[in-house]
């Protein structure tokens, strides 16, 4: 897709998704990281079910086009033809204004591959809670370094309002950068010394589901203290 068309499209979808989120008064938990964000997304969503219905973003639709679409209960067109896009835009418009509101809680996945991606995503949603899973291993494309990406996660941490919460895997090499950016309360979890929350079993947390469970518990405690809107 041509760059300019993509920009216009993303602006339009973003406005529609924001509108739907706004009229639904949804509290958004954003899950980001390089590794383990899908697992974390599902684990957190499962845990939050006890507070009521939870919206979960679909598949890996976590970009500036995919994220607004999933918030409008749509999927990016598989074939990317003009006709398909036409139908989708029409539906997006109808859903934004006329579909039932989203649940009060939403867990959405944020995907960043390059510098600047996070700002685009933050134009769509302002999370009250941000979870940052793993920033340590990557097979990302050559142009983007881990430092670049950790700055993206710092941008996310900074965007969370004061009364919100940032949940950070403190075992990340880049945790410091992210930590210093946050103005909200920040809770770090992980196996290493210095983290606030540790796994129950004193083992190295290798699997994404171990870490996801820790993050989910922290968030669940936070929501239960804060109350759902």
């Amino acid at each position: 897709m041509r760059y300019s068309i993509k920009k216009v499209l993303s602006w339009f979808l973003c406005a529609l998704a924001r509108y739907r989120l706004g009229r639904s008064h949804t509290v958004v938990v954003a899950v980001a990281g390089i590794v383990g964000k899908s697992t974390a997304k599902r684990t957190v969503a499962k845990k939050l079910k006890k507070f009521g219905e939870v919206f979960v973003s679909k598949k890996n639709y976590n970009t500036e086009i995919g994220l607004p679409l999933t918030l409008l209960d749509l999927e990016p067109p598989y074939s990317q033809t003009v006709g398909e896009w036409g139908t989708i835009l029409y539906r997006a418009f109808v859903r934004a204004f006329f579909s039932p509101p989203l649940p009060r809680l939403a867990v959405v996945e944020f995907g960043v591959a390059e510098k600047g991606d996070m700002l685009q995503l933050l134009k769509i949603v302002t999370p009250i809670v941000a979870v940052i899973t793993n920033i340590s291993v990557s097979d990302f494309n050559s142009q983007t370094t881990l430092e670049d990406l950790s700055i993206e996660f710092a941008v996310l941490a900074a965007s969370v309002p004061k009364q919100g919460l940032v949940v950070l895997n403190g075992d990340n090499n880049y945790a410091k950068i992210v930590k210093s950016a946050a103005k909200a309360r920040i809770i770090t979890y992980g196996a290493k010394e210095g983290n606030e929350v540790h796994p129950v079993a004193p083992k190295v947390m290798s699997s994404a589901s171990d870490t996801a469970t820790l993050a989910a518990t922290i968030i669940s405690d936070f929501i239960s203290q804060r109350g759902t809107p």
Partner: peptide, 16 residues
């Protein structure tokens, strides 16, 4: 991992 989870199979993307 997501497609497996949809059909009820829980496996970890990172290690399984």
């Amino acid at each position: 991992e997501g497609s497996l989870a949809e059909e009820g199979s829980q496996y970890d993307a990172q290690s399984e």
